[in-house]
């Protein structure tokens, strides 16, 4: 219980710190808007079919996430606050707190980007709730993997470039399943139609969170 409580405190602290500078939120949302503009501008509103748009949506989300999610740990290293953090909380709480923050950040990103994408790209789907479920489950897995990779690269040099390079092979299942689910919900309304991808997304998230909780100690105390 203490573990969860401490994780929540860390989450709170990160939220407060983030809203003081708004570094990660600005970076991630602006990146998404810029990419969306570039995509919309270059292919036009009616040129692309729904299948292509489903892929584009996830690609925009993925690379926007890559632009900001590493900040959570890089910040601690840059301001030299990680040693203090080590004193006040066990590694598991720290991972959970940071993970929660990244999850929150991704949801915020989706809250802004997805409606914008639907409006600008003239994209429409039948199954709204299944789609939202796939987005939430996708973010669940995406932020879990990204948080762990962020912890790893915060200790290395050339952080920015490495983050995308290391994350891509680990996070690609989320991208594939997410695109797959979105393609299905364009025509299908029921949850049953995308139960396969949803299960895979959920399984992925559980596996990655479990592995991260077990391994985080080794990264954090390095």
């Amino acid at each position: 219980m203490q573990l969860i409580l401490k994780a929540f405190y860390i989450f709170q602290k990160d939220i407060r710190q983030e809203f003081k500078t708004r570094y990660a939120i600005n970076a991630i949302v602006l990146f998404a808007v810029v990419t969306l503009t570039a995509v919309s501008f270059s292919i036009g509103t009616f040129a692309a079919g729904d299948e292509v748009l489903a892929a584009l949506l996830w690609i925009i989300l993925f690379f926007s996430a890559m632009s900001g999610l590493a900040h959570i740990f890089v910040r601690e290293e840059e301001t030299h606050t990680s040693d203090t953090l080590k004193l006040v909380a066990p590694p598991m709480s720290i991972y959970l707190g940071k993970y929660l923050f990244n999850f929150f950040l991704l949801l915020l990103l989706e809250f802004i980007t997805v409606p914008l994408f639907f409006a600008v790209m003239n994209f429409s789907i039948s199954g709204v709730w299944p789609f939202l479920a796939s987005l939430v489950l996708g973010s669940f897995g995406l932020s879990a993997g990204a948080t762990m990779i962020a912890a790893i690269i915060s200790k290395a040099s050339a952080k920015g470039a490495l983050f995308a390079v290391l994350s891509f092979p680990i996070l690609l299942p989320v991208l594939i399943m997410g695109i797959n689910a979105t393609r299905i919900v364009i025509r299908e309304e029921s949850f049953a139609a995308i139960s396969g991808p949803l299960q895979a997304l959920f399984a992925y998230a559980v596996v990655v969170v479990t592995a991260s909780l077990l391994l985080f100690d080794f990264v954090w105390n390095e």
Binding site: I149, I152, K155, A156, I170, A211, L215, V219
Partner: peptide, 14 residues
Amino acid sequence: AALSAVYAIMAFVT
């Protein structure tokens, strides 16, 4: 060694 070991295991899991 430690960081690349963790990465290898993460990759092995996914």
